[in-house]
Amino acid sequence: MAPAKRAGKGKQAQPKPKDGAPPLPFKQPPEVLEPFISTLSEKHIYITHIDTKPADFKRKIFLVPVGMNICVVLLFILRMFWILPWYFKLVASAMGHPNETTWTATDATWSEGGWEVGKRAITMLFDFVLFVFVWPWPIEFAAGQAHGNPCQWRWQIGFRPKEIYVRRSRDWDQLLKDIFTDKDSKTILLTYLQQATSPILQEQKTGYLLMNGQWDLDWAEMVHAHSLVDKKDIAIEAFRNLVLVHHRDYGWMSYDLKVSEASGEDERRRQVFAFRDTLTAMGKEDLFYRWVEVVQFESTRPEGFGPDEQEAAARKIRELFEDEKINFDELWKQSIGSMNSSQA
């Protein structure tokens, strides 16, 4: 019997660990999430996080698409009220009942005929676009069934200080191959995940505004997640910064966000934004920008930014805040503490 051919190193599949754990940066999701994970589609990647924006702010944001969809419905009804009689007359004319829409081509010139055909074609094309591409917006908003709809979500969840948002990958996920054997697929996946889970992005935008070309919101799963929390089957903290990916060999895996190289930098930026928000709430937003100017100026001086220069900059910053009767160190700790408490 001839010996089996060896697989090339570049195409060799990565062996599955003995304990069944997926390779880093993935790991097995907590068992407590099984009731939630069991309802997910294996074709998609999911991201969950907790939005701690004030309930009133979320209500105002949601009123924008509500108003837009109401306007679309009203304009569509107005258009139908105005144009439907014209279509009925066209049909009646075609069936042998002359009316003002009846037009005899033999009595018209080429220019007159072209103008009349063009007007009717543009009118019909406009109504076709409205019916096929615009009208589905309010229908999906209020009565979508594939993944739920925003109205059903808000009706059942309401507006809460802490809300679970579930994002679902769009069609790009179908182009991925095995992320453990295909380097390009893994790179694409991790790039999208790192962009979507950036602490700065999630801190600055409420969850409703995180829909984009790569991610949709899964309304039905958001309702399901909250129902599990309300029944105390799962703690709400289990949904904080959770990424779920399905693999044919390992089943559902969670992406370990702590291994992201950019997580430390994102956390520092998040602290700066929290500090800015604290100063803004105190009516001292201008002090924040003066602080930024001092840091930028001192850190870019030609002599460098060594320990001595850093100490001198710290003294200037403390004096700047003392002139406003603010203890910089205490305020920084307070702002970071409030950021952590809002995540709790």
Rank of each mutant, 00 (worst) to 15 (best):
A7D: 10
A7W: 04
A7K: 10
A7S: 09
G8I: 05
G8D: 14
G8E: 14
G8V: 04
K9Y: 13
K9I: 14
G10P: 00
G10V: 10
G10L: 12
K11W: 11
K11M: 12
K11T: 15
Q12L: 14
Q12A: 10
A13Y: 04
A13F: 03
Q14I: 14
Q14D: 05
Q14M: 11
Q14P: 02
P15Q: 00
P15A: 04
P15T: 01
P15E: 01
K16I: 08
P17R: 08
P17I: 01
P17H: 08
P17F: 09
K18Y: 04
K18F: 05
K18G: 12
K18Q: 08
D19M: 01
D19Y: 02
G20R: 00
G20M: 01
G20L: 00
G20I: 00
G20E: 00
A21K: 11
A21M: 05
P22Q: 11
P22D: 07
P23V: 04
P23D: 01
P23Y: 01
P25C: 09
F26H: 04
F26Q: 01
F26S: 01
K27D: 06
Q28T: 12
Q28M: 03
P29W: 12
P29K: 09
P29S: 04
P29Y: 10
P29E: 06
P29V: 10
E31T: 11
V32E: 15
E34Y: 06
P35K: 12
P35T: 09
P35F: 14
F36Y: 13
F36S: 00
F36G: 00
I37F: 09
I37G: 02
I37Q: 04
S38I: 12
S38T: 15
S38K: 15
S38A: 15
T39V: 13
L40A: 10
L40V: 13
S41Y: 05
E42A: 13
E42R: 15
E42D: 07
K43D: 12
K43C: 03
K43H: 06
K43F: 02
K43P: 00
K43Q: 12
H44T: 08
I45V: 15
I45H: 06
I45P: 01
I45C: 10
Y46W: 13
Y46E: 05
I47Y: 03
I47F: 06
I47W: 02
I47V: 10
I47Q: 07
T48K: 07
T48D: 05
T48C: 12
T48R: 08
